[in-house]
């Protein structure tokens, strides 16, 4: 019975998360439409329903859908112990990795793509390696090889072959 209640609370948390996700998109969309005066400035001439038609229909569906999705978690919350349990299975590895990738373009501009790529691949190949501390030399060697090979592949693929203007 307790397990069922716990599962319900977890599901309610997830369902509420889903509803908030859709409502966030809808909210951002409505703000953009409300602050965009040219959308309704009559530049859509003649019989054309205008550039605001599909955005409004889509945002209306998204808003109605998001609101509808809040009903179930709220009902579960009302019928249970008025607590929503947030299942916390968040792992910090992808968040750290994501932060590093966000910084990557800036680093690339500062030191060039080759050095930035080599450093990025070396660091993460070492940091993510299972049992890196038990076998540091082996892990360092693998990370170095991975950094060199990846940088070479990027150089050949993007610089030489498709002639992309890498920083």
């Amino acid at each position: 019975m307790d397990n069922d209640a716990g599962r319900n609370q977890n599901n309610a948390g997830l369902d509420l998360g889903v509803a908030v996700f859709f409502l966030l998109w809808a909210g951002v969309g409505w703000v953009s439409i409300a602050t965009n005066s040219s959308l309704f400035s009559g530049r859509a001439t003649g019989l054309d329903p205008g550039p605001a038609l599909l955005p409004i229909i889509t945002l209306a569906i998204l808003t109605a859908g998001g609101l509808a999705l809040t009903v179930s978690p709220v009902r579960k919350w009302m019928s249970a112990s008025r607590r929503i349990r947030w299942k916390s299975d968040l792992n910090w590895r992808p968040i750290g990795f994501l932060a590093c990738v966000v910084a990557f373009p800036t680093i690339m501009h500062a030191i060039g793509y080759a050095a930035a790529t080599a450093l990025f691949v070396f660091f993460w190949s070492f940091a993510l390696a299972p049992n890196a501390m038990q076998r540091p030399r082996r892990t360092l060697a693998i990370a170095t090889i991975a950094a060199i090979v990846t940088t070479l592949l990027i150089y050949v693929g993007f610089d030489l072959v498709i002639r992309s203007r890498l920083p």
Binding site: I33, P51, P55
Partner: peptide, 25 residues
């Protein structure tokens, strides 16, 4: 369907081809 709606909104970002009005920018 709701995820598809997000995709539609993302597809509308930028200038409208018929009227040149910028949307969601």
């Amino acid at each position: 369907i709701l995820v598809g709606c997000i995709g539609l909104i993302v597809g509308m970002v930028g200038f409208d081809k018929l009227t040149d009005v910028a949307r969601f920018d």
